[in-house]
């Protein structure tokens, strides 16, 4: 596992970068969210974006899906400047699962059909299976699902667009430990099937369980080696103090 920031090096290995952020600055409502961030994300495995609240992790993820655009700098997806790509096609290639499951009104089937209006029964069932849900869920109402089921339904819905890569924005933060581990296992299975993933978290245990490489952000920047080590040490000690509450 490599740690960008902690080692001051980008993701190693021969793979071309899945995403590359070059001198990215993001200012929203006069607040600097990201400050000259340059980082590469490897085109393999799970890259975990780590950092304290407000470090810019989620905004970085939103830049990759073009739900935000940088104030300055360039974001590349497999070498292409995403500003030059059709945003609607890009978003189907780069699927995103949000922190809180956004369930649309209607059944699970209707939710999946929003993502893939022409999908047949077998394709919908396959999407559910990939997200660890069985076919019986298709006719369940979305608002009757538990938190974990709803989040897996959202994952299935994202998978219905057949994305090349998955962005996961703290997807387990609202889930109980059992649902969290189940979603992590699902994520690992999807990655092992060849779909790289970028996973945002501030949970160091989860980062260690999941990551093939880690990127540490501090105050909207890629952490220097010392900053990353300090952050990881501080967060680790906070985790120890707070272990019971966080389960």
């Amino acid at each position: 596992m490599s740690v960008s920031g902690a080692t001051s090096t980008p993701a190693d290995g021969p793979d071309p970068a899945l995403f590359a952020l070059e001198d990215v600055r993001l200012v929203l409502e006069d607040r600097c969210i990201l400050d000259d961030l340059s980082v590469e994300i490897a085109d393999r495995g799970i890259t975990v974006l780590l950092g304290a609240s407000g470090a810019g992790k989620s905004m970085t993820l939103r830049l990759l899906n073009r739900l935000e655009v940088p104030t300055s700098g360039v974001v590349r997806f497999r070498g292409d400047d995403i500003a030059s790509l059709d945003p609607l096609r890009l978003r189907r290639r780069v699927g995103m699962v949000f922190q809180r499951p956004a369930v649309f009104p209607g059944t699970v089937r209707e939710n999946l059909l929003v993502a893939a209006p022409d999908a047949g029964e077998s394709e919908l069932v396959a999407c559910l299976a990939a997200a660890d849900l069985d076919a019986s869920f298709l006719d369940r109402l979305g608002d009757e699902l538990s938190g974990g089921q709803a989040q897996r339904m959202c994952l299935a819905r994202t998978l219905a667009t057949e994305p090349e890569v998955l962005l996961m924005d703290e997807p387990t933060s609202a889930l109980d430990p059992h649902a969290r581990h189940r979603l992590e296992e699902t994520a690992r299975r999807l990655v092992d099937d060849g779909r790289p993933m970028v996973w945002v978290t501030h949970d160091l245990d989860q980062a260690d369980r999941l990551s093939d490489q880690q990127v540490v952000l501090v105050a909207g920047r890629l952490a220097t080696g010392d900053e990353a080590r300090t952050y990881l040490a501080d967060a680790s000690s906070a985790d120890g103090d707070d272990g019971e509450r966080r389960g």
Binding site: L88, G95, F98, F104, P105
Partner: peptide, 20 residues
């Protein structure tokens, strides 16, 4: 906003995502 951005993230155009 959360639902609309979830729709946009699925590749829906803004007019479709906002419609409901």
């Amino acid at each position: 906003r959360a639902e609309i951005e979830a729709r946009l993230a699925l590749g829906q155009p803004s007019s479709e995502a906002a419609k409901p």
